[in-house]
Design a protein around this nucleic acid. Structure first.
Lengths: 262, 262
DNA sequence: AACCTTGGTTCCATTTTTCGGGAATAAAGG
DNA sequence: CCTTTATTCCCGAAAAATGGAACCAAGGTT
């Protein structure tokens, strides 16, 4: 066990809710001895991984980490394409959109595009959602084989709401549907009153996969709007898939538009 | 010298130009022995600080770092950053500064930083200026499309002085210039004997936009001083824009300094 | 096939850090 | 002034880092 992993461990103590941490916080959070922790925090600060807020003793991640985070998405051309497309779709639809990736059983938004409607979805970037209970998450899960999905949820399967999949089998049924249509939908699942449509695309070179998703208030969305969004997303995803050489793209390959009815 | 700082050192090897690094890259960049570097990179990957791209041996900063970066952004508001920056610039330049927002056809100062020169501009907070006839106002208007500006001034266009824009077309020409340079300038317009330089930055998440402006007596300002202020404002705005994810930032994106001449 | 070259990993003995826990110190905040 | 919070010091045992060299695996090249 190297000190590096301990340092990373400390970094993981930070979160949306705990943006700044004090020595005692970290000690409490990790149950490690005080002296070691104090030394470690100082070392991390001197290394430029953390910085202290003002002249207080509270620590937070440094600018260096921020810049590195920026690279994360700047580095990917898949991401760039995804952002371009989603920006267009959001512009047109007026509803907010996200580009997200999956990390284990969760998905995380990397990029947010604000819609122009007064009532719009505005979850901040960096928040995590359950993969099984979001359109985005399922669009990504659908790219895994069934047994990989089972393995992923072998030890735990959370059910955040009544409209979310209630069992793994339930989830698999919905994933099959996603694979068939290329499109994933959620309705009042992880966030109350929020619905979403999502598609996933991958870069076979780097094996990275991102999901494009448009979210809207379930109360005001019309079937017509949904069909338009769905078709724009599908068409866009299809073109990105073609460019990147993504072949796994199931239904995206077929030329026919989805959701003709309803 | 702890390994933490060595790790941070490795992280610093990444940049916009070098988004992914291979072992030999890092060895070359830091001149450290191969074996140590190999082990370090592996440790960092296992700790979750780095990840390998696809199944290649190229490393890049991990998702963890991206998340931490997001926290850095969420940690403070646009306003807080704007104030920090302006406080620095004012300190350095000695002239007064404001952070302002636009409200329709007017701009209003929210925060005032007193310069240290004997002769200084001292408009109290809360006073309103015409947006079209101030550096601050034009920096904010420049972020609107032309037709929105026309619509805004459709029913009325006040002309407070001879140096202010005389017509809407005149204004649009000056806004185009602002968009080009990222910088807005006024000279003896709304306030007699007062000039100003301003830049605008926005938080795309909340869609709030603020303007940072430094004001000075036109009688005593030198071209050199102006150039310094302009560059400090631009550089600062650029960094805030990066942190906040503001992409509309026109000329702020380009790396070249403004106002080299004169 | 035999032979480089290149990029990466692993082995080893040696040197350097780190660890923890308690106590003293210091600094801040009531 | 008292309390809470953070830092520093101590030190031997235990763990990790180091750098050189050997070792591997791929891809060329002859």
């Amino acid at each position: 066990m190297t000190i590096i992993s301990t340092a990373a461990d400390v970094l993981r103590c930070f979160s949306q809710e705990r943006q700044e941490l004090t020595l005692t916080d970290v000690v409490a959070l990790r149950g490690a001895p005080k002296s070691s922790t104090s030394r470690l925090l100082r070392a991390m600060r001197e290394a430029g991984l953390l910085e202290t807020v003002g002249n207080s003793k509270r620590y937070r991640p440094s600018l260096l980490l921020f810049q590195l985070g920026q690279l994360y998405r700047a580095g990917s051309s898949l991401m760039a394409r995804a952002e371009d497309l989603l920006s267009d779709v959001v512009e047109e639809a007026g509803h907010s959109g996200y580009v997200s990736i999956r990390d284990g059983r969760e998905v995380m938004g990397l990029r947010y595009f604000a819609g122009r409607h007064a009532l719009r979805v505005g979850t901040p970037i960096g928040r995590r959602l359950l993969a099984q209970a979001s359109a985005t998450g399922r669009s990504l899960l659908a790219r895994l084989p069934d047994d990989a999905v089972r393995a992923l949820f072998a030890d735990e399967f959370e059910i955040p709401s009544a409209t979310a999949p209630q069992t793994v089998d339930d989830l698999l049924r919905r994933l099959a549907e996603v694979r068939r249509t290329g499109l994933s939908e959620s309705w009042d699942e992880s966030n109350r009153g929020v619905g979403a449509l999502a598609v996933a695309v991958a870069d076979p070179q780097t094996e990275e996969t991102v999901s494009l998703c448009v979210t809207y208030p379930v109360a005001t969305i019309t079937a017509d709007e949904k069909r338009i969004i769905a078709n724009r997303l599908l068409a866009g995803a299809r073109s990105i898939a073609t460019v990147m050489g993504d072949r796994v793209c199931h239904a995206l390959r077929a030329g026919e538009p989805a959701m003709q009815g309803t």
